[in-house]
């Protein structure tokens, strides 16, 4: 079996690169080309969530102040909140000072 000198292999690679228009990089140096070559990911990322509705009751009311449309879901929600408050199940009061915050209590 004959061994081919390294310099020959190298020369062959160089010629092959020039023929097939690839980069001749014998030392495998990192050129950062992959960051330029990779497709952009942003456009697909932005489209992940469904778009917000173009027309909602609140939006229409803002555009046309005189209409005063009723958002049924919102009315139901407010009624729920009211009934919960009556039963003493409402949201806790906001802390006025950092000392009375729930987080401060937790750390102890």
């Amino acid at each position: 079996m004959t061994t081919i000198p390294r310099s020959y292999v190298r020369a062959l690679t160089r010629i092959r690169c020039s023929i097939f228009q690839t980069t001749f990089n014998p030392s495998s140096q990192r050129t950062g080309a992959k960051y330029l070559r990779a497709p952009l990911r942003g456009p697909a990322m932005v489209q992940y969530y469904p778009k917000p509705e173009a027309f909602s009751v609140t939006k229409l009311n803002k555009i046309y102040p005189g209409w005063n449309l009723v958002d049924i879901d919102e009315v139901v929600r407010l009624n729920d909140v009211e009934s919960k408050k009556k039963r003493g199940k409402g949201a806790p009061k906001k802390a006025k000072t950092p000392a009375e915050s729930r987080r401060a209590r937790k750390k102890r």
Partner: peptide, 14 residues
């Protein structure tokens, strides 16, 4: 994305 890619290219280019 594009500006970051450009900086990445420079930073990673040996």
């Amino acid at each position: 994305e594009i500006v970051r890619r450009a900086y990445l290219y420079v930073a990673r280019n040996q």
